[in-house]
């Protein structure tokens, strides 16, 4: 009973933290545009918190640069369970145009932390980001919390 209530609450109140691990800022400004009155992310119960300790979802943007290799793992460890990682844009998936000779990036981000879902585009439109977040986030949150519970029960 309590667990079901928790799941319902989790579905409707999601805190998001943006981590720019070395991108061009394009995806970040599109994420800010999602907050604007036109797209209004908050009407779906998603709040931009930008604090990893509060967050349920980590939005990764940017190809992983040298400085971020260990810090990314630390931030992931600080985020409370259940957590979902969503890669926004091409950079965390393939490194985009920076994954060439001379570039100092270590894409993809899934080498460092588990990435649950990804949105393609350089950068994706705010509508694409919102639809992807809404498609993935609530379901993934509930599934993860249930999985965690089962592990606990087994113990």
């Amino acid at each position: 009973m309590l667990n079901r209530l928790k799941d319902i609450v989790r579905k409707t109140s999601i805190n998001v933290c943006i981590i720019n691990c070395g991108g061009c800022n394009g995806c970040d400004v599109e994420l800010v545009a999602c907050l604007s009155p036109r797209y209004d992310l908050e009407q779906y119960g998603i709040y931009l918190q930008n604090n990893p300790r509060d967050a349920d979802i980590l939005l990764l943007t940017g190809a992983v640069t040298e400085q971020w290799e260990d810090k990314l793992r630390r931030i992931y460890a600080k985020t409370p369970e259940p957590k979902v990682v969503l890669a926004v844009g091409n950079c965390p998936q393939s490194g985009d145009v920076f994954a060439q000779e001379g570039g100092r990036v270590n894409a993809p981000a899934s080498n460092y932390i588990p990435v649950d879902a990804a949105v393609s585009g350089c950068p994706p439109r705010p509508s694409e980001i919102i639809s992807a977040v809404l498609k993935v986030a609530p379901g993934a949150m509930v599934a993860k919390s249930q999985a965690n519970r089962e592990i606990k029960d087994d113990d």
Binding site: N20, G22, G23, C24, A63, T65, V97, G102, G103, R104
Partner: peptide
Amino acid sequence: YVHRGIEKIMEGKTWQKCIYLSERICGICS
């Protein structure tokens, strides 16, 4: 934290490949 080495990537490339790299120096004033 955001050093990607764009100038180094640009060396030895034609402008067709570089103009999109220069666009991705900064996403706000691209």
